[in-house]
Design a protein around this nucleic acid. Sequence first.
DNA 1: CGTGATTTTGAAACGGGTCAACGCAGGTGG
DNA 2: CCACCTGCGTTGACCCGTTTCAAAATCACG
Lengths: 257, 257
Amino acid sequence: MSVSPISGPHRPGSGTHCRTCSLSSLCLPLALEAQAMEEFDAIIKRRAPLVRGESLCRQGEPFSQVFTVRSGSFKQVVLDHEGEEQITHFYLPGELMGLESIEEGSHAGFIIALERAAVCEIPFHQLDVLTERLPALRNQLYRCMSRGMGEDRRLIRLLTCKSADERMASFLLDLARRFERYGYSPATFRLPMSRTDIANYLGLVLETVSRILGRLQQQSLIALKGRELHILQPEALYQLSESSHCHGNPALSRSRG
Amino acid sequence: MSVSPISGPHRPGSGTHCRTCSLSSLCLPLALEAQAMEEFDAIIKRRAPLVRGESLCRQGEPFSQVFTVRSGSFKQVVLDHEGEEQITHFYLPGELMGLESIEEGSHAGFIIALERAAVCEIPFHQLDVLTERLPALRNQLYRCMSRGMGEDRRLIRLLTCKSADERMASFLLDLARRFERYGYSPATFRLPMSRTDIANYLGLVLETVSRILGRLQQQSLIALKGRELHILQPEALYQLSESSHCHGNPALSRSRG
DNA sequence: CGTGATTTTGAAACGGGTCAACGCAGGTGG
DNA sequence: CCACCTGCGTTGACCCGTTTCAAAATCACG
């Protein structure tokens, strides 16, 4: 019954090599030539699938590799010293995890599987060395990190400017966009995370998320049963997400050029 | 009267070469050997100082170089299609600007001087090529980007979890930490940005910022006159910043890894 | 010393959080 | 096969922090 990624166009394990992996066009080896891809392929490790709730790495653990999602999905959870938990990111197939931990040298948070999921492990040092010889790979890595920064800034904007409804709308559309990238219908998919997780990520409480989803459903913008989501009116949802009454402050005033 | 960065230990222009620049230990050339630093030095361009309000780059403009702050300070402002402005970052001396624009190929936002300020321009393509031969430089670049991501995640946590007072406290301490890095007293400095800018950045309104600063002053945690700030009780401020009643949601439940 | 920008202060309205009760499904064991 | 439990999601009533609106005070600068 569930529209899990497993049943989608990109099957996990549909290739134990980058060359045959259906995700390679979204992943780091993008734009690598055959020879280069083999070299890249040689340094990455495929690891046994994780089950729901299992963690890929723990906060504070020494950093030595980054990961890409082959199938399933993950959340990054960071714990502050008071033990408060905060979800800073959800990861879908083809996405790179762990880049924010390079500088610290230890993992910035837990990375936890939201469902049965598989990853590729990429030892960072070997990747670094390889980027020396493969400009295309280096470039792709720069771009991935840059994209990560851009996405974070977008989330920051969302959190500072937007009301609860706008956040929810943005969140759903962002997921849709990413699922589409992965080869699924952007209109119909299964939310991999719980309401609680959504709330935590968006800086809301569970009850608010629940109420908003109910409201969106009443207005027929979406149809939702459990975690099965249909986006019925994407443009209306988009408009909602951009209602943007960011407490108007002229940050650009007096700019001269 | 004003404790502007100009009068501090690191003087702008105190070296028109990386070798003699007092910021080199904070900047990209960190850890480069003499020979490597010369090579790096050769690709960067120093440009005439900007005046307050002048913009270093405009949103949407083609991306070709990143910048480091030599003196003064900047804000990054991004405009959404409704014309709403959002400050996503403040930059102090020694900090790298523009990294989030690599992927898009065009600048993600305006970068605007908050006061008289000077920068180094680093053509990205040349930097990329140089990182091929200089592992230490490549590593530093990866680390800079990774640090940027980490900082953004921290801001995200701040925005989702924290109350207005906690945000303000975190913000002031963050500035203090960065000024300290730059060689100034972390207890006494001049806020380079307006109350409006602070509000915009923290997702609050001007009035709230003003009230909170007033309250902090009443409680003698800080002393503030115009933009001149003294942090009187840093540890108390820190405690305040971590009161963290993040609407407790168990994001880590059932982890088995 | 005046004029506009910036900041402070006050009173009232509202969005979202808190608390508490209820509904619903899936699993377990008698 | 059904009663029970447990995890998850929904709904309602009330409350608090932050925004909104309005106006006064202070500052920067020609």
